[in-house]
Amino acid sequence: MECLKVSEAKMVVYVHPSKSTKIYDAVLRELSSLLFKFDENFDGVVLAYEFDILDKSAKILSGIHPYIGVRIKAKLLLFSPKPDMLLEGRVVKVTQGSIHVIVLGFASAVITEEEIRDEFVYKIKHEEEVFSSKFHKHHTIKVGTMIRFLVKSLDEEILHISGSLIPAHTGCIRWLAKHLDDDTITGRSKKKRRENEEESILQDHGTVSGEALSFNSDHRIKKSKKEKRPKAES
């Protein structure tokens, strides 16, 4: 997804002197406090990080600043959806007026009726609420479907995205993969593989992290820590 990126950042982490014996843990804790929150400096939500401490000699300047300034160089995986970017997520609820989606297991998104193109009609099929296409009867969106949609806006406080299904290249990923780029067989299978990878990431509840990256434990979506992130994502 284009809204995921890896940034390198040089930072100074201020550590309380009482933690001077556990600098590494203290830095981890400090960086973990950034997780799953929108940060204006990075212009995105920090999902994972790894870091190196650049300088072993950090001193307290007593009387000036009682904290130990630890200089680090960090690699941050950022999630920064911008308007008109494409996002992918799993549908969790369909109502007549809206489609609710969860992106990467933690950000919620809603697509309201006005943002669903006319091609899709709300129906109840086998007691299941679905939006299905008027032109392609296999193109349906229901609970559990992975869909691709356009970002309209982001509420940075609660990471709530409002999205749109107006453009033609949005909708059910599986269907789009089959019908939009009908290239060569290899192309298709590559696409499919990629899609599977993406889904598996999502099923792992957003643990898009490289090794040695650490997650804050304050979120339940985190299950497995060491899921290698495919290159295609960055």
């Binding site: 609820k93 933690f106 339940r220």
Partner: peptide, 10 residues
Amino acid sequence: ADLVPLSPMR
């Protein structure tokens, strides 16, 4: 919590 995964945090 299913619809808004970050809601328990709030």
